[in-house]
Design a protein around this nucleic acid. Structure first.
Length: 837
DNA sequence: CACGTCACTGTTTTT
DNA sequence: CAGTGACGTG
């Protein structure tokens, strides 16, 4: 807990002004590394302490769950756990989903609506296109969805879209049926009691616009509204923000137009550029001092941005050391690029005593991670257990996980069409495509859900033979038996029953391949995740309130990024998008090539400017060292492209701040190196080679074979880290070393057998054994040795003294008086704590 | 209806 | 290359 004066003393003048000003709409332009998160968290602390606001009256909207979680933790350090916990803080999507569950009937939904993810939306669209007799190679589901998504982000309903679409001069006339598809898509969503991501915004807008009583309620609740990453908001989000604050001047938005990298998803940079017009009497604040990076890095990044037209004038500067120049490194091939990067990492570790976690490799597309993964896993490189890939195939995208979740979805919301389709014949139960089509046709004729048809086949005159009918009725009674238990069993019990009784467990058990093993472990990880969810719900509310419904509504909006932990000492590999908000001692931005960065899709105009901002974000993640690498030859789409050109952005950066390196030295500039005879080692004088020279057939047969070998030995599930903690960002990185939260998190990781199991299985995709020396586990059984009088440190409630113990075994409960948060009952089976006295 | 084989196609970023 | 869909066979 800190006093007002302590809070203010940790801020510079501009930060302080931004924190203290609470008299009206406020836009804070916060340059990279300028302490944006610090200002937001301190401002919220200020509202709580100086103005005595109730935490539940403060709404703070972020772009990612991760950012919300991190901010909550940092606020907790300032004002205590309890108040931080009660803040209304989360992503637009999660906060609005929550509101919509409460107000569901007002927008024509049931409160157990499913949230369709991208895959569900595309799959539904694909079905619709087929049903309408259209060609899905013209109406590509992904493309159609992005058009509909854009329309929804601009709050165009079907009718408005149709008008808009027919009037639009640049209409692609091949796609005249788009309005019809949108119409059907929307009808089917409603029929399935499902919303897609965009509906969460659209329906919230409609709810607030059309229901004055509801609007008044939330206007009253949210007395101060703060928005992070404002440059990434879209039209719909702005409209909602305006509705929520129409009578309320207490709006604070923070952003950086330089870091707007989500226009492709509808983000409107105009929101930040026009803030002062949208909100009258708005006041502008600028944070321009970068505390993160060296002067050279900041200057290089600034010089790049001079080439963008659309921007708010600003002068980002650093008073840190001048530092090294940004290194531009030209390599012969993508494989060599990976080699160079790994070498450089090892060299810097030796030279400067850096840790693995000081490094990040950032790329434009997820596919680029592969070359680096393969390089690091070579025995002679020896980095196989020291890296961690973010993103890629998310845990929740894995087939086996989606299958299980589909069961959950159907049980919670039987109308869910996509879930139904996914599991009606998984595990195989003899209900094939023919039967499914009959069900679909019947459902459409009778204007009802697929579930309703098989649940009441007689009423709907479903025409299938007797054997099939038996199979269907077995399926419905199975699902029904789960539905019966929905409100009596907790999420964990029900989930386990579903996995067993559905036959999923058995189906996976017979698979003795390593892939099957990995799938089983993924399922175990999911179960562990549910156990942990139940645990946190029980601790938080002490009610029997951890139902499958609750789990599902949380999990639908989770992404793998929300569960990744940076506290491990690992080299981080991720897309530039995923790196936003993070910082690293040393950053390698790789693949700086034409058609990669900038992407082939974004060759000109606004899109090119966005790509340039993307590079800006990447460079400004670096504190001390920044490398920009590119390769002359790249293996892509199963083919070698030997004529790669460097990115045009490399020429945009002022050469004063760059030092150029090239693998081939002068040989490179004299001609294409692959035109050499293949027996020289043109790059050898630049650094030592620690692998056998393979010559230029590197992109001939040998290359391909090597690549296949790697492919076969790759972990099936890829890499995924469970429940990890975001890195604390902010100007003063040093505070991280003593950040109590990091320590607490580590304790948490070590304190439960469950955690190490989860993180290990997920991190390794079930197969790849990494070095995991730290996991000294403290199992829950030990927790039962707890005695009255013990002092414990709880992962959420802090320090407290045990005053009573009840129950035995599974049901062993402790009554604990926490210093900060009062008396709680802990079910030991589920609690995370360590005994400290 | 299940399963295996084969050809095709598409690859940006993500709440 | 990898994931998907079409098609043929058991």
């Amino acid at each position: 807990m800190q006093t007002e004066q302590q809070i203010l003393s940790q801020l510079n003048e501009h930060q302080k002004e931004s924190v203290i000003y609470c008299d009206g709409p406020q836009l804070i332009i916060a340059g990279a590394g300028s302490g944006k998160t610090r200002v937001l968290t301190y401002k919220i602390a200020w509202l709580l302490t100086h103005y005595n606001m109730k935490p539940w009256n403060i709404l703070a909207l972020t772009f990612t769950n991760k950012a919300a979680k991190e901010m909550k933790e940092r606020i907790a350090q300032l004002v205590g756990q309890q108040r931080a916990q009660q803040l209304q803080m989360g992503t637009f999507h999660s906060i609005f989903a929550h509101i919509l569950r409460v107000e569901a009937t007002a927008v024509g939904y049931g409160s157990d609506f499913t949230i369709y993810d991208e895959t569900d939306s595309r799959s539904l669209l694909k079905n619709i296109v087929k049903e309408m007799g259209l060609d899905d190679s013209i109406y590509k589901p992904a493309n159609v969805h992005s058009i509909i998504s854009n329309a929804k982000n601009r709050l165009l309903d079907v009718n408005q879209f149709a008008v808009h679409y027919s009037n639009s001069s640049n209409t692609n006339h091949d796609l005249t049926d788009l309005p019809n598809i949108y119409l059907t898509y929307q009808q089917r969503l409603v029929q399935a009691n499902a919303m897609d991501f965009d509906d969460l915004l659209f329906n919230t807008f409609l709810l607030l616009r059309d229901h004055p009583d509801v609007r008044a309620k939330y206007q009253q609740r949210y007395q101060y509204v703060l928005v992070d990453e404002y440059q990434d908001t879209n039209f719909a989000q702005l409209q909602i923000l305006q509705l929520l604050t129409e009578h309320n001047p207490h709006v604070c938005v923070v952003g950086d137009d330089y870091q707007s990298i989500y226009a492709f998803r509808g983000a409107n940079i105009g929101n930040i550029l026009n803030f002062n017009k949208t909100f009258s009497n708005a006041k502008l604040f600028k944070l321009e001092q970068n505390y993160r990076s060296t002067q050279n890095i900041v200057a290089a990044a600034n010089s790049l941005m001079k080439h963008n037209r659309q921007q708010i004038a600003k002068n980002v500067f650093s008073r840190n050391d001048e530092g090294d120049k940004v290194v531009e490194w030209e390599t012969i091939s993508d494989k060599r690029e990976a080699t160079v990067v790994c070498h450089e990492i090892k060299r810097l570790m030796r030279a400067e005593g850096l840790h693995y976690s000081d490094f990040a490799i950032l790329y434009r597309t997820n596919a680029q991670s592969r070359t680096f993964e393969e390089e690091m896993r070579k025995p002679e490189v020896g980095l196989g257990s020291h890296y961690q890939i973010y993103g890629g195939t998310s845990f929740y995208q894995r087939k086996e996980i989606k299958d299980v979740i589909a069961y959950f979805r159907l049980v919670v919301n039987p109308s869910d069409e996509e879930a139904f389709r996914r599991i009606i014949n998984y595990p195989t139960r003899g209900i094939g495509n023919t039967t499914l089509q009959k069900i679909v046709v019947t459902a459409q004729r009778d204007n009802t859900s697929l579930w309703d048809v098989i649940n009441h086949p007689g009423e709907h005159l479903l025409d299938v033979n007797k054997g099939t009918m038996t199979k269907l009725s077995n399926f419905t009674s199975l699902i029904d038996s789960f539905i019966q238990r929905l409100h009596t069993n907790n999420a964990l019990q029900l989930a386990q029953s579903i996995i067993e009784q559905s036959g999923i467990k058995k189906d996976l058990a017979v698979d003795s391949t390593p892939e099957g093993e990995a799938r089983r472990e993924n399922i175990d990880s999911l179960i562990s995740g549910i156990a942990d969810f139940v645990d946190s719900q029980m601790e938080a509310s002490l009610a029997d309130h951890a139902l499958l419904t609750d789990y599902l509504s949380t999990v639908s909006l989770l992404t793998d990024a929300d569960n990744t932990d940076d506290s491990d000492d690992k080299i981080k590999l991720m897309t530039i998008h995923a790196a936003k908000g993070l910082e690293f001692n040393t950053v390698f931005v790789v693949g700086l090539e034409k058609n990669i960065l900038p992407s082939i899709q974004a060759a000109e105009g606004n899109q090119l400017e966005e790509e340039r901002r993307l590079l800006y974000v990447a460079i400004t993640r670096a504190e001390k060292h920044c490398y920009l690498t590119w390769a002359h030859a790249r293996w892509r789409y199963g083919k070698m492209d030997p004529f790669v050109e460097p990115s045009c952005f490399l020429d945009d950066i002022d050469p004063t701040f760059i030092s150029k390196k090239s693998e081939g030295g002068s040989a490179m500039s004299q001609g294409r190196p692959w035109e050499n005879d293949g027996h020289s080692r043109p790059w050898s004088d630049n650094f030592e080679i620690d692998q056998p020279y393979t010559g230029f057939h590197a992109w001939g047969d040998g290359y391909r074979k090597a690549s296949n070998r790697m492919q076969n030995s790759r972990p099936v599930a890829g890499q995924f880290m469970a429940d990890m903690k975001p890195k604390i960002t902010g100007p003063h990185r040093r505070e991280e070393a003593v950040n109590p939260f990091s320590q607490r998190m580590e304790e948490k990781l070590k304190s439960t057998g469950r955690w190490s199991r989860v993180s290990k299985a997920m991190a390794n995709g079930g197969r790849l054994a990494t070095s995991d020396a730290s996991a000294s586990s403290y199992s829950m059984a030990n927790g039962q040795q707890l005695k009255v009088g013990n002092v414990i440190e709880h992962s959420r409630f802090g320090k407290g003294t045990v005053t009573a113990m009840t129950g035995t075994g599974e049901n062993c409960k402790a009554t604990v008086e926490f210093e900060e948060t009062g008396t709680k009952q802990l079910l030991l089976k589920f609690s995370h704590f360590t005994i400290v006295g």
